[in-house]
Amino acid sequence: EDTPTSDDLEQFAKQFKQRRIKLGFTQADVGLALGTLYGNVFSQTTICRFEALQLSFKNMCKLKPLLNKWLEEADSS
C-alpha cells in the first residue's frame, strides 16, 4: 500500500471532518466506533488531533485507512 503524502493526509483529514460532521457524529463517536469495528478504541483527543493534523506522520498513516473504512461504513448505513 502506498504511503500517503502529507498533502494526501491533509486533504483526507479535511474531508473526513466535513463528512463526520455532516453525518452527525462526534469525534468521541468515531473513536468508539473504531473500537467496535476494529477492536481498538481511539480517544476523542486522538480523532481531534488527527483532524487537526497534530499526530505524527506515522500515526496519521496508521489511522487513515481505519477512518476511511469507518467513513465507508457510516456512509452506507
Rank of each mutant, 00 (worst) to 15 (best):
T3H: 12
E51A: 00
A74N: 15
N68H: 07
K69V: 06
K17R: 11
G35H: 10
N68A: 12
P4L: 15
T3C: 13
L55Q: 03
S77E: 12
S56G: 09
A74W: 07
K17E: 04
P4Y: 09
F50D: 01
T3I: 15
S6F: 14
L63Q: 00
S76M: 12
T5P: 08
K22W: 04
A13Y: 01
G24T: 00
G24D: 03
E10R: 15
S6G: 11
Q54D: 11
F50I: 02
A13Q: 01
G31P: 02
Q44T: 12
V30G: 01
M60T: 05
D2Q: 14
L23T: 03
C48T: 10
L23H: 06
A13D: 00
Q15A: 08
S56L: 02
V30W: 01
E1Y: 07
D7L: 04
A13E: 02
N40A: 11
K69C: 04
L37A: 12
Q44I: 06
A28D: 07
S77A: 15
Q44P: 13
A52Y: 03
E10A: 13
C61K: 11
T36C: 08
E51G: 01
F42L: 14
F16G: 01
M60G: 03
A74P: 05
N40S: 13
D7G: 15
Q44L: 06
G24C: 03
W70A: 03
F16D: 00
V30F: 03
D7M: 14
L53P: 00
V41H: 14
T3Q: 10
N59G: 08
Q27Y: 15
L67E: 00
D29Y: 06
Q18S: 12
T3M: 15
E10C: 12
T46D: 15
L66C: 06
G24R: 04
S43C: 11
R49Q: 14
F25R: 05
C61G: 05
L71V: 10
D2G: 12
T45S: 12
Q18L: 08
A52T: 12
G31V: 09
I21H: 06
D29R: 05
C48Y: 09
K64Y: 12
R19W: 04
F57C: 03
Y38W: 05
Q27P: 12
L53T: 08
K22S: 08
K58T: 11
T46F: 05
D8Y: 04
G31H: 05
C61D: 05
S43F: 03
L53C: 14
F50M: 03
V30P: 03
L37M: 14
T45C: 07
V30H: 03
A52G: 10
E10S: 12
E51F: 00
P65C: 14
N40R: 13
E1A: 09
D75K: 10
A33E: 07
T5H: 10
L67W: 01
C61Q: 09
F57H: 12
K62H: 08
N59F: 12
C48D: 14
R20H: 00
K17I: 04
K17A: 09
L55D: 04
L34Q: 00
D29I: 03
S43T: 13
F16V: 02
D8S: 14
S56H: 05
E10V: 14
E72S: 08
F50P: 01
R19D: 05
K62F: 08
E10Q: 15
V41Y: 09
L37H: 07
S76E: 13
T36I: 07
K62T: 10
A13R: 03
F50E: 01
P65Y: 15
K69T: 12
V41R: 12
F57N: 14
K22F: 09
P4I: 15
K64R: 09
D7I: 05
G39R: 06
L34P: 01
E51V: 00
L23K: 05
T3F: 08
T26Y: 00
P65N: 08
E73P: 04
E1K: 09
R19L: 05
V41M: 13
L37I: 15
S56C: 05
L37D: 09
D29P: 02
R49I: 00
R49S: 07
W70N: 04
F57G: 06
K62E: 13
Q15T: 11
F12I: 02
R20S: 02
Q54P: 00
A33I: 08
L34N: 01
E72I: 09
P4W: 15
Q54R: 08
F16M: 02
A74H: 11
A74R: 11
A52S: 13
I47P: 00
P65S: 04
G39M: 02
E10H: 15
D8P: 05
Q11R: 13
L9H: 04
K14M: 10
A52Q: 14
K58Q: 14
F12R: 04
D8M: 11
L32W: 12
F42D: 05
A28H: 09
D7H: 05
N59D: 15
L63D: 01
L71R: 04
T26W: 00
L66T: 06
G24A: 02
P4A: 11
W70L: 03
N40C: 14
K58M: 09
E1Q: 10
P65L: 04
L55I: 04
E10G: 06
G24I: 00
D29K: 06
Y38A: 10
W70S: 01
A33G: 05
K69S: 08
F16Y: 01
V30N: 04
T26S: 12
K58P: 09
M60K: 00
K64A: 10
F42W: 09
Q11G: 09
T46L: 09
S77V: 13
Y38I: 05
F12V: 04
V41N: 13
K64W: 07
C61F: 06
L9P: 03
K14Q: 15
F16A: 02
N59V: 14
G24E: 02
L66H: 05
K58I: 08
A13K: 02
E1F: 15
N68R: 12
F42G: 04
G39Q: 07
M60Y: 02
Q11S: 11
E73Y: 15
L23Q: 05
F16S: 01
A33Q: 13
T36K: 14
K69F: 06
L55P: 02
Q27D: 04
S77D: 13
E1C: 11
N40Q: 15
K22V: 05
Y38N: 11
G24N: 04
G39P: 12
D29H: 06
S43L: 03
T46Y: 03
L63M: 13
K17C: 04
T26E: 03
T45K: 14
G31N: 04
I47Q: 01
E73Q: 15
E73F: 11
P4H: 15
